[in-house]
Amino acid sequence: MSSISRRWTPPPLIANRALRYGVYAGLCLYLLVAFSTIEFNWTRMSEGAARAGNLFAGFLRPDFTSRWDDIEAGLLESLTMTVTSTIVGIILSIPFGIGAARNIAPVPVYAFCRAFIAVARSLQEVIIAIFLVVLFGFGPFAGFLTLAFATIGFLAKLLAEDIEDCDPAPLEAIRATGAGWWQVLAYAILPQVAPRLIGLSLYRVDINFRESAVVGIVGAGGIGATLNTAMDRYEFDSAAAILLIIIGIVLACEYASGFIRAKVQ
């Protein structure tokens, strides 16, 4: 048994002392500078306090009735936009997904599909919506195109990854029977990726509805446009009603898709 006291301190995350303190100092410095560049406009904020109160009161007593016609029209646009864009997006994402899977697509097709997906994913929906509104005019058609485009980027990438992760053994087995490319697709690939594709598609319904509320802000139709108008008029009780409806529908979508996914998988 030892009688001398031995010291112990926990091993630090970064072993090099200089580097460790350098990293800590750098982080503190960044936070300090970043904070200092935020402008706090106190007079503007005190003006806003009353509005914050109104908004909060609006949530407690939302006004569904006085703007109901606008809300109804906006909801209808959002919902139809969600359905059409999801369906079209899923249908188009299948060829793009297959084309972007390295193990079954020829190289030029692979390169094109991958590039398309990369562009679709890195641009925010709102930015795409701005352009499409310029090109196609105001209204839900531009929103539909935006969401369909974004859906392709989302689903095709995940589908391609799924196909690439497919167990190659059944693939070889089906090929070995002398099956053609389409038969390989139908018998070896599809059964392996179908359940997850259905799950992801349902998840995308949620996302598309949420995004449909956003694209309206830049003029692409839907409930977002109604919300934007309500905010512009400082009708916080109507705005609160719209937000509560959005939350309710998203919640319903999540439950429904969870239910369907449990049935399918």
């Binding site: 509005r51 995004e211 802000i217 959005i246």
Partner: peptide, 15 residues
């Protein structure tokens, strides 16, 4: 459920 852009819309009117 509510996108950052919508949160921003609310907060800009307040702050």
């Amino acid at each position: 459920s509510i996108n950052a852009l919508i949160w921003a819309l609310l907060l800009v009117t307040i702050l």
